[in-house]
Nucleic acid binder design. Structure first.
Lengths: 235, 235
DNA sequence: GCCGGAGCAATTGCATACACTTTTTGCCTC
DNA sequence: GAGGCAAAAAGTGTATGCAATTGCTCCGGC
């Protein structure tokens, strides 16, 4: 085993490969539609083809790469339509979670949700984007858990993780923090009232706005033709 | 390659293994929580461990088996709560598809949907369960496609496939065929009118009823302990 | 008698070698 | 010169062997 890889402390080799390849995909180092040759990847990361194959399987399940039998794997092409479709799905899923949360959250869950939400106002005042983003993730996770439906939770988390790369830049928009907080407030208020319809609507609107904000960035990124902003390691 | 396996007509070895293992899981031959030893499975099906490993990966992604690093795979335990949660999700997803279909289906899609639906009345009159089940799958698929949202489609199909084993027996209930057709009719009518709210509600109700019907069977099936109804090929 | 650690067996993870499928390239024919 | 077929090359799919991790058992100490 190469000494190099020992330094990258982490779990199994497959996990490392999954991370390594998905990183290169979401950062654009590997372009959509690009062919992923098993042997090359294996050589590139100094492992055998076996863990590469398994990593590609997992990435395929995640939707980051496409695999066709006997024809190898390619980086999944995320068309603008598909991206829109995923945000749309995300809005519907969040709406479901919010509705269910309004109906099913325990008193304790409601208290925690509201408390954390109120606490996050501080980050808005300070303009602490990092911290707010961290809180934001937790807030939504709470919402998903509050639905008390394991499968809905899984679907939602999966969709969110697939959208993650396209959401990164949203808080760079001026005033987005405060607006986000207001939207959260509408959701929390509805949930505290037990008003599932209002909670659903608020959640859907929240995602829709994020969607628009992100789409601008995602597409802007592409359109600008930022083709080579990455360290072309080795080759 | 053993001549035996050549007779089992199908794609790659991994596909066969996925089918074989998932069959044994959904039919109860492999019980929930049971350990899935790679070597044993490989010997059992007369293949090497490699395709078995990949099959287990896929089944894990499907949610049929659980895998822990260095600890092997076990048949996923599907609690009654989780099953209920999945049917609930299915109802919500179908509702979304129906709503979107009511809003977005093209004139052609609407025509086809209605035509096929009307044609299926014949299967009900004849009591042709096999044919109706086949049509039924197509009907729902049309609904999912009609939503014109690739990601929603994927989520819905995925959830449906995970529920498939628990739905098989539903049409064995007396009068279920006619009732199913009536429910479909409500959905189709709403979609033809472009009434998304009504379509969503009708679709949700439809799944809820299927859910109740299936739950009875699923649990009954297990309790009866149908352990050995399968052609134990070889060995 | 119970708890803890070291050694051993069993099983998973990774590497390499071989087989089969697909694709490309070059040659032959029209 | 263009089209098609065939053979080779490239790349995926499967098998097998070895390394590494886990869990168990057995022995020793408290």
């Amino acid at each position: 085993m190469s000494a190099k890889r020992n330094l990258i402390r982490s779990g199994t080799t497959v996990d490392q490969m999954v991370r390594a390849i998905s990183d290169r995909i979401v950062t654009g180092f590997l372009r959509p539609g690009e062919k992923l040759d098993e042997a090359s990847l294996a050589a590139r990361f100094d492992v055998s083809r076996t863990p590469i194959r398994e990593a590609l399987s997992r990435l395929s399940a995640m939707g980051l790469v496409e695999r066709r039998p006997n024809r190898g794997a390619t980086v999944a092409v995320m068309t603008q339509e598909h991206l829109a479709s995923m945000f749309e799905s995300m809005a519907e899923l969040e709406a479901i979670c919010a509705r269910f949360s309004a109906e099913r959250m325990t008193a304790g869950e409601r208290r925690t949700l509201e408390a954390e939400h109120q606490a996050s106002a501080r980050f808005v005042q300070l303009g602490a984007e990092e911290e707010y983003e961290l809180f934001n993730t937790g807030f939504h996770t709470r919402l998903y858990r509050g639905a008390h439906s394991k499968h809905i939770y899984e679907l939602t988390v999966m969709t969110r993780s697939r959208l993650a790369p396209f959401r990164r830049a949203q808080f760079m928009l001026p005033g987005r923090l405060a607006q986000s907080w207001q939207e959260h407030d509408a959701i929390v208020t509805a949930i505290m009232r037990g008003d599932s319809t209002a909670a659903g609507t608020a959640a859907k609107d929240h995602v829709s706005i994020v969607s628009e904000a992100s789409a601008v960035f995602a597409i802007g990124d592409r359109a600008k033709g930022k083709a080579e902003p990455f360290p072309t390691s080795a080759s």
